[in-house]
Design a protein around this nucleic acid. Structure first.
Length: 888
RNA sequence: GCCCGGGUGGCGUAAUUGGUAGCCGCGAUAGACUCAAAAUCUAUUGUCUUUACGGACGUGUGGGUUCAAGUCCCACCCCGGGCACCA
């Protein structure tokens, strides 16, 4: 009997597959539907880790399954090959990043091939290849032509160590994501992409996508749409207005002052009118010195009043003072806010810090307050019935209370009681304009909007707007004061300029006057020069290239200068999935015909860490290309599934310093690629962001399973059992039922990415077969087919041992006999007073009467009825195929 | 603080979506084979209790709905992720 020699087998079949080219995917196969399976291509770090295996080899199971189902499956890969790590390594080694990168790609190709995946390498995409970045540059030109790209001075995140600009996404907790250095803010002119133009579509189009809920929420949070109102406060004795943005127009009556960001353009204009000009100027310059981070972290809400300047609240014509304070950010909304200390913790903190409080009752809980929400009449009744009111501070914080603001005579007779309660709460008293009353959360209030009367303040429960939602109320007030409803976003435009060498050159040249011109398409690709010392010194390395300057002058004329910045690598990866479709095309980035054949991507599997970066960027890219008429879809990825991380055996993230890194090459050498693939699939469901620890014993368990599959086949063949091809096999009826149930179960599991339970079902099948004397050859072959997407090498070997001429991977996925998967009888439990006391085997469709008779005759059942208090049957429930429940 | 997920044996997980909780794998214990070990095979393995048959408890906690709750409802605790002086 041959041993299961994984090294020989895996090498043999990988060579065989490459030779026969069975994984090369044509664009069209008559009678087959195309299916585009995508995984995020990798950065060529030069060493494959377990994460790569998890990212590529488990989706490969799905791709193979789809293929056996009769789809024409495209499963491509390539390299996201530009980027800082190679450049930094090259600097260290005194090497050329290009040479280094291509070496590392060679090494990684070999490693990736050891997975036994069905990648179509003929379509490989490499982003640092000029034939690729030619199109990256071409797209940039298109964007520039259509005002989706522009040059602007912005505050940028600057990493002093990497000497480069970082996108917001690349900054975590104020530190460079890559090297951990504290990031500083810097003003810099750079190329921007107008992603904010797409903010609404990037949020709204999520609704129609089959994506994990959490990922959609993350993107929404990141874009940070906030729907509110823009309201204007008129400056007294002036025709100037201060525009504020608020999401709580309904609190407009509670405004006690207005605050401008110190950078706000009106500050300098108003300077002439203020009596404390110097104080204001000092504060402004102090703010300028502070880093944004520092501003965000400082607890104290400092600020200076613009003395002598007053503005008019448009709701009640009240005059309120104007302050400047650095807790108001210039870059968000209008850079000015209306302050409602009664309803907003930040405003409250500011007014406390600056002694602006008027003695109102204020609660430091931003969202617990609802200024204008009243109750329905029923709730008024329930308020009246409140016996005592506790307003201890702690309870307010913990209890999720709703607060109501009343000015209604109906409840004014409650005042004494409330005042009594408030007295214990040292800091509370009756507000100048109303009164707060608390209600428990489960007495869900119906928001009732207000009728505005500048003289009376505002009245609630007038009945006039009864039943309005809070959004409608906000709208009403906004209209009342002549404001408008607007959305603001947290998302900023995408700065793509990088002052580094190893990236896609930005295809721009400057004329002698310094005006930017895009490089005409005929000069693309605009090649990255090689005569560059890329040691970072804070300036772009390309500025030191003679070749680039000479090339520029030769083409455009004396005095012209090249752009010396390169693009963020997220630009490269924003469109790579189109290039797979037509990777050798010289005339277009991809032909319309081929894009029509494959797009959109049917299944995109990747890491959750790309949610607010690559995935968001490439969605923007697709929409932009669609607007420009180059692609047909507004979304590139129909279905998205995220995976978690593989942790070290100790449950921590794998890292060299923790010494818990699993080297896949070693495990593959020891146990085989099939084992590693299957173990990764067996750990838990794929497509959920759950992290699984690598269990060295667990892998061995999977290897044991493959050994048993191997032995099961060999043993029967050696005994001369009719397992040989063409001879049919022994029939074992019970086994047949199990087999068909297994086919059904695995098919369903794989569709749902539950590879773990699919594998467990194969284990159950094997466990059962091992107990039998013989297994039919046909049945065994079906098992091999079910197993083949998971363990492609061993199954192809055993398949060919059985005399099959074509690869198992070209065979059809097994189907099951629907009749065989339905049981005639079922064993169900018998509950007596809710406890399972016995079980009984019944025909699946046994009728109520006969079941009742049978069950009540059972000794175990009688026994429990005897010991019960009532001894008589109050209820007899029989749900066919599920349960019998008796109440006594 | 706001918005999402999620809490099941010693561990990774499973549960026909309201119907016998713990499938499969790992680990552990005992046995067979062996001079011995590894490998392999067999049996047991949620906790407590009982000589045993059995019984009680059990899906983060506390309530509730139901004949029946891991699953539905309410409140809370803990863990993970996204956002955050964003008005």
């Amino acid at each position: 009997m041959k041993n299961y020699d994984h090294l020989t087998i895996e090498k043999k079949w990988q060579d065989e597959w490459e030779k026969s080219g069975i994984y090369n995917t044509p664009d069209n196969v008559p009678g087959k539907e195309n299916f585009y399976t995508l995984t995020e291509f990798t950065y060529p770090s030069g060493n494959l880790h377990v994460g790569h295996w998890y990212a590529f080899s488990v989706p490969d199971i799905f791709a193979r399954y789809k293929r056996m189902q009769g789809f024409n499956v495209l499963y491509p890969t390539g390299f996201d090959a530009f980027g800082l790590p190679a450049e930094n390594a090259a600097i260290k080694l005194g090497a050329d990043p290009k040479v280094l990168t291509y070496e590392q790609m060679d090494r990684m190709r070999t490693q990736i091939k050891s997975m036994g995946g069905m990648f179509d390498w003929s379509r490989e995409v490499v982003t640092c290849d000029p034939e690729y970045y030619k199109w990256t540059q071409w797209m940039f030109n298109q964007f520039l032509k259509h005002d989706l790209a522009y040059r602007a001075v912005t505050k940028v995140n600057w990493c002093p160590k990497d000497q480069t600009v970082l996108a917001n996404e690349q900054v975590t907790d104020g530190k460079c994501e890559r090297c951990g250095t504290e990031v500083v803010q810097k003003d810099q002119e750079q190329w921007m992409l107008r992603i904010t133009k797409y903010a609404d579509r990037l949020i709204d189009d999520l609704d129609n996508l089959d994506w994990p809920h959490a990922i959609k929420e993350s993107q929404k949070n990141w874009i940070g749409r906030s729907e509110g109102s823009e309201l204007e406060f008129t400056i007294v004795n002036s025709d100037q207005k201060i525009k504020v943005f608020t999401t709580r127009a309904d609190t407009l009556f509670g405004v006690t002052y207005v605050v401008l960001a110190p950078e706000h353009e009106l500050v300098s204009k108003l300077l002439e009118n203020v009596s404390n000009k110097e104080e204001v100027q000092d504060y402004v310059s102090l703010t300028k010195k502070k880093q944004e981070l520092e501003r965000q972290q400082s607890k104290d809400k400092t600020g200076v009043e613009l003395k002598g300047v007053k503005v008019i609240n448009p709701a009640n014509n009240e005059e309120v003072p104007v302050w400047i304070a650095d807790y108001v950010l210039a870059g968000y909304g209008t850079g000015a806010v209306m302050a409602v200390p009664r309803h907003d913790t930040r405003d409250y903190e500011f007014s406390t810090h600056n002694n602006l409080n008027k003695g109102e009752f204020v609660v430091a809980r931003k969202h617990a307050l609802c200024g204008i929400y009243s109750s329905s009449i029923e709730n008024l009744e329930s308020i009246k019935s409140i016996k005592s009111i506790s307003l201890s501070y702690e309870e307010k914080i913990k209890g999720h209370l709703y607060f109501f603001y009343f000015n209604n005579s109906e409840i004014l007779n409650l005042l004494p009681k409330i005042q009594e309660a408030l007295k214990d709460d040292g800091q509370a008293n009756i507000s100048t304009t109303g009164l707060f009353i608390e209600l428990r959360k489960n007495e869900t209030p119906r928001p009732v909007p207000i009728e505005c009367d500048p003289n009376e303040g505002f009245l609630i429960n007038s009945g006039k707007f009864d039943g309005m939602t809070s959004d409608e109320a906000k709208k009403k007030i906004t209209e009342f004061v002549g404001g408008k409803l607007v959305s603001t976003y947290r998302l900023r435009d995408w700065g793509i300029s990088r002052q580094r060498y190893w990236g896609c050159p930005i295809p721009i040249v400057y004329d002698p006057e310094g005006n930017a011109h895009s490089i005409p398409d005929e000069h693309l690709p605009w090649i990255l020069p090689t005569d560059v010392d890329h040691t970072p010194d804070g300036t772009a390395p390309l500025a030191r290239s003679k070749e680039l300057l000479e090339r520029t002058e030769k083409i455009f004329g004396k005095g012209w200068k090249p752009e010396v910045e390169t693009m963020d690598t997220f630009v490269d990866s924003s469109w790579y999935f189109y290039r797979y479709l037509d990777s050798k095309d010289n005339a277009e980035f991809a032909s319309t015909e081929k894009m029509n054949a494959w797009m959109p991507v049917d299944m995109y599997m990747g890491g959750a860490e790309h949610t607010t970066m690559h995935v968001l960027y490439s969605r923007f890219w697709t929409k932009a290309l669609q607007d420009l008429g180059f692609v047909k879809d507004s979304e590139a990825y129909k279905v998205r599934r995220n995976r978690g991380l593989i942790l070290g055996p100790d449950g921590n993230k794998m890292s060299k310093s923790k010494g818990n890194v699993i080297n896949p090459d070693e495990i593959v050498e020891l146990l085989g690629a099939d084992t590693v693939r299957m173990y990764l699939a067996f750990m838990g469901p794929y497509g959920v962001t759950v992290n699984y620890p690598w269990d060295p014993n667990g892998v061995v368990g999977v290897r044991r399973f493959l050994e048993r599959v191997w032995k099961l086949g060999q043993k029967i063949v050696n005994e001369g059992n009719p397992l040989l091809p063409g001879e049919g096999g022994l029939q074992s009826k019970p086994g047949e039922v199990l087999l068909h149930k297994t086919i059904k179960g695995i098919t369903e599991d794989v569709e749902e990415f539950k590879f773990n339970t699919a594998i467990s079902k194969m284990m159950i099948l094997i466990n059962a077969w091992e107990k039998e004397d013989s297994v039919s050859g046909d049945d065994y072959k079906i098992l091999l087919q079910l197993l083949s997407p998971f363990a492609p090498h061993i199954t192809d070997e055993l398949w060919s041992e059985l005399g099959e001429k074509n690869s198992i991977h070209l065979s059809q996925w097994p189907t099951y006999d629907a009749k065989l998967v339905i049981d005639d009888t079922v064993t169900i439990g018998i509950q007596i007073n809710g406890k399972v006391r016995a079980e009984i085997e019944l025909a699946k469709d046994a009728d109520q009467e006969s079941v009742r008779e049978k069950v009540l005759a059972m000794d175990e059942v009688k026994k429990w009825i005897e010991v019960s208090d009532s001894k008589e049957i109050k209820k007899f429930i029989y749900v066919p195929g599920k349960i019998i429940s008796i109440v006594v």
